[in-house]
Design a protein around this nucleic acid. Structure first.
Lengths: 139, 139
DNA sequence: GTCGACGTATCAGTTCATGTTACATGATCG
DNA sequence: CGATCATGTAACATGAACTGATACGTCGAC
């Protein structure tokens, strides 16, 4: 099963955007993401809608950050992507009426919920300037 | 991305096996798992190799548990399946030499490592008899 | 020796994310 | 105002991976 790398890809691009003054085009940023402009725009749509970045058409257009890196948490980026599924494992309810199956599902769901909480907490603590510099943010 | 439900499926089957005296055939157990015998055998191969279950050919053959449920941890089952990938997210190293990308990867890898530890700890604490009864094992 | 069961290789089918193309919209510049 | 440049997005193509399916080999009980 292939992993969803959009979060990693988007962070990479955002950090590069922060290093440049003017806007950058999908053409350029897609290359930095290793894909093509249409995929890049599709991926960034949520970040535009939640206001992390803005995009302009026409001459001199392109993408830019709307606020400094220390005002953007990893959690905000994750949520802007639509909170993609974190886990590769899960339940399949073939027999929803079966008590055993319900117990199994509850155990796995509990553990995954705990792990989710951990992800959210950590993501909320990390701002993008923490990532831009050397890897130092509290442990 | 579709979730890997093998762990959930296998637990379900193991608990049902524990409720029966004699061995059960792939035919029967596959039906309980909602699949066909070949897929069932493929899925259970690791559990046979690690000794959680045994299988016998010929008349009166089939699958049986080799030890009671309270001697089987969820972790043992997970490992017998080959420690399937837990996470749906991940890094893609398109630019391994890029410092920014290395920082991004490190942040995500750290968080995933922490979550892995949590999964392993919880899986190690839970034995299958905890799941068989009502859902009570410590919180 | 026949039958019943597992073991497993191999191929087919499906699904889903990603890649691709195409075209519409809108802004800027001359 | 028209040309150009950029985004927005729909629609379709591609490809990889997992599951399902089939076939056949092995082995044990009767």
């Amino acid at each position: 099963m292939n992993r969803d790398t959009r979060l990693s890809d988007v962070l990479h691009v955002l950090l590069h955007m922060a290093m440049v003054d003017g806007p950058l085009t999908s053409e350029v940023l897609a290359r930095s993401m290793g894909t093509n402009p249409a995929v890049f725009r599709r991926t960034m749509a949520g970040l535009r809608e939640t206001g992390i970045v803005s995009s302009d058409k026409g001459h001199g257009g392109g993408w830019r950050l709307t606020r400094p890196l220390n005002k953007i948490t990893l959690l905000a980026v994750y949520e802007a992507l639509g909170r993609p599924n974190l886990f590769a494992i899960g339940n399949r309810s073939r027999h929803p009426e079966c008590l055993v199956e319900r117990n199994v599902n509850a155990v796995l769901a509990d553990t995954m919920a705990e792990a989710s909480t951990l992800f959210y907490r950590r993501f909320g603590e990390i701002t993008l300037d923490n990532i831009a510099g050397s890897h130092e943010f509290g442990h």
